[in-house]
Design a protein around this nucleic acid. Structure first.
Length: 435
RNA sequence: GGACGGGUGGGUGAGUGGCUAAAACCAGCAGACUGUAAAUCUGCCGCUCCUUGCGGGCUACGGAGGUUCGAAUCCUCCCCCGUCCA
């Protein structure tokens, strides 16, 4: 009777509920776990994602990590790629209709998505599914019948629809279908548990209802809090620019993570690391009591997160680099290098570009022998426009070899070999080598 | 199908003939202060040219035309969104 396959239910529950915003319903999760233990049959747990953007950031990892927790406990983790539903576009959160994606976009996104997801989930233990498998096969009759299982009034209860209705903003009919179609995912997958962000709560509840309509037991809906972005206010998202991408360079991630406010740090600890809750509580107390410097606590956080994606060594290096650049205020050890060569005809060629992981794009400009600094930086792609570069100089944000440049007219002599270390603004460092 | 209201810079949103590159707020950027924090303060915040100046040129208020010395502002047509009626 006692299966050794799973840890004790009590343990599982505390592990699985850590960080969760809500479990609907608690008792159902417990009994499902007990049932799994009794039968030896793992729970089918899924997370559905829309491959709307090719890159995933830390905000996405909150729910992924939760899926992994189920995997850790021996349950079946299903990563569902909403390739079909993405072509409809989930209205969630955005108070506007999302542009549907094309098949090609979806495919491309799905591919890069998976690579990134496997930084968290164990590829060997993850069941990857695409909802076009079943949704793509439904006939319009099937769709109509599915729609018959739900009422408009209930659909309009959804916060997003309601507020758009109140504000006289458009709602397209196809958006109403989204929760219903994804509900069918739960049915097709015979799901026991579905994980989602709190903003998905409405959808998850519809999924439960529809499963019941199809004669299945309702899945447990486990919601995770939404990760607040670097600005400390709004949801982490790419379009708001307040995000940390999981493929970003370790040093970049480190810098970004260190810029969060002290208060925000604790939810990052909770949602992005595996530090046990009691440890986090203790750290918090130490910071409050003054025995632990908040900066040190934050560095430890950044270190832990980065180690998860890039390994211990990279995390350590990023940490050292951070201290070097920002505490000791030195130029970073590894800055992007731009090698320039002046051609006989007066054009300038970028012969090599290192760092940033960019492919070396050969470029030629007619800059002349002595371009102004702002011009050069724009040509190198460091700054978007000349106006902006001029502004940066006027505001004292440009340093060459440690000296602040104050005159926008200052020129660079490209006629003889030289090297410059450039600091543009707070974060951008680069080295220019004239050959 | 009819009546009415609306479409302004990255976002919200003022502006109903010149003083408007377009208020205000948010976001963003830079500087100061710091723990690269956060908060705060100051400045900037379409592009471009230089003689860097309360400078010149260009582009911009859904789209296309038109009226006018001059239009985000007025007229015509079109596109899009919402409300009410059917």
């Amino acid at each position: 009777m006692t299966s050794t396959k799973f840890p004790p239910v009590i343990e599982q529950l505390s592990y699985l509920k850590r960080g969760a915003a809500e479990v609907i319903r608690d008792e159902e999760l417990k009994s499902k776990l007990e049932n799994a233990e009794r039968t030896g049959k793992p729970l089918r747990v899924y997370l559905g994602v829309d491959p709307t953007a090719p890159d995933i950031h830390l905000g996405h990892t909150v729910v992924l990590r939760k899926l992994k927790h189920f995997q850790d406990m021996g349950h079946t983790a299903i990563f569902l790629i909403g390739d079909f539903s993405a072509m409809i576009g989930d209205p969630t959160g955005q108070s506007e209709t999302r542009p549907p994606l094309t098949r090609e976009q979806v495919d491309a996104n799905a591919k890069t998505y998976l690579d990134q997801v496997y930084k968290i989930l164990d590829p060997k233990k993850t069941e990857v599914r695409y909802n076009s498998e079943w949704l793509g096969k439904m006939s319009s009759f099937d769709v109509v019948r599915l729609c018959g299982h739900y009422r408009l009034a209930r659909m309009l209860e959804r916060e997003d629809f309601r507020s758009r209705l109140e504000k006289n903003l458009p709602i397209s009919v196809h958006e109403l279908l989204y929760p219903l179609l994804t509900a069918y995912d739960a049915v097709a997958l015979l799901s026991d548990v579905e994980i989602g962000a709190t903003e998905q709560k409405f959808n998850l509840l519809v999924h439960r209802d529809i499963q019941r309509e199809f004669g299945q037991p309702s899945e447990v809906a486990l919601t995770m809090p939404i990760l607040v972005g670097l600005d400390g206010e709004r949801k982490m998202s790419k379009s708001l620019g307040n995000y940390v991408g999981i493929t970003e360079a370790p040093s970049e991630m480190f810098g970004k993570l260190m810029s969060i406010s002290d208060e925000l740090m604790w939810s990052y600890y909770e949602l992005l690391t595996d530090f046990p809750s009691p440890v986090i509580v203790r750290l918090k107390e130490e910071v409050r009591g003054g025995t632990l410097h908040p900066m040190d606590a934050k560095m430890q956080l950044a270190h832990a997160i980065i180690a998860g994606f890039h390994g211990e060594d990279a995390a350590k290096k990023a940490s050292e680099e951070f201290q070097r650049v920002f505490r000791d205020r030195l130029a970073p050890e590894d800055v992007p290098e731009y090698r320039l060569r002046l051609l006989p005809n007066g054009n300038v060629i970028l012969s090599k570009k290192r760092g940033d992981g960019e492919s070396p794009v050969p470029a030629v400009w007619k800059l002349g022998t002595r371009p102004r600094w702002p011009k050069l930086l724009v040509e190198l792609g460091i700054i978007d426009s000349t106006s902006e570069a001029d502004r940066l100089v006027k505001q004292g944000g440009l340093e060459i070899d440690g000296l602040r440049l104050s005159d926008v007219k200052t020129e660079v002599d490209l006629s003889s070999a030289a090297q410059f270390v450039v600091k543009a603004g707070k974060k951008k460092f680069l080295k220019i080598i004239v050959e």
